[in-house]
Design a protein around this nucleic acid. Sequence first.
DNA 1: TTTATGCATTGAAATATTTAAATGTTTTGT
DNA 2: ACAAAACATTTAAATATTTCAATGCATAAA
Lengths: 98, 98
Amino acid sequence: MAQMDAKQAEKISKALSDPTRLKILSEIKKKNDWLYCVDLYDNINLAQPSICHHLKQLTETSIILPEKEGRNIKYTMNNDVIDEYIGFLQGLKKDCGL
Amino acid sequence: MAQMDAKQAEKISKALSDPTRLKILSEIKKKNDWLYCVDLYDNINLAQPSICHHLKQLTETSIILPEKEGRNIKYTMNNDVIDEYIGFLQGLKKDCGL
DNA sequence: TTTATGCATTGAAATATTTAAATGTTTTGT
DNA sequence: ACAAAACATTTAAATATTTCAATGCATAAA
């Protein structure tokens, strides 16, 4: 597994540091690991540009992956990035690496 | 292990979303899992109140634990919080919980 | 008891983030 | 081709964060 550096970890952390973005991730989880952008409008009480903005933060860090399907975009979780981020966090822990 | 909710995860993420705060954590790691506040002044090019502010963010989320020793404060990593946060992240992953 | 050291708090400026109205782009349906 | 649907971008306002000078407070040293 590739090693994530502090700069990347900072960006992932920032992407995860907003209630709307965590809500988006939990919606993806709830809908069995993928959803269309439009699915979020029902569950998130924000204007479309705001949701779009949050999706951008999550896709720019590759936490979720966009897949174009005609007019829609299908978003899925990217386990690899989560795992690399977890690896970074493990490395911070006390007594880790003795 | 206690389960972390989204609100807590948001706060942890926010605490981890700053280069200075990640630097503080890596300094703690480098110094064999603990250091005094004063140890940071050499390695971080910010004024004392700024470093104090960042330490506060990290202690308020319990990512690091402060221990008073006379005039000094000794900071150590809190593995429990990191582990709970990692648990939250694992729960977000695709195909997790089938 | 003064003086110095280590850390916290306050207040304010600079910067970044969040939000949405208006508008643009791409694709689908008629 | 035209209209509608799905998502993106621009712009700007509201809010939050970062930073530091000045100051405060508690502990230790002289």
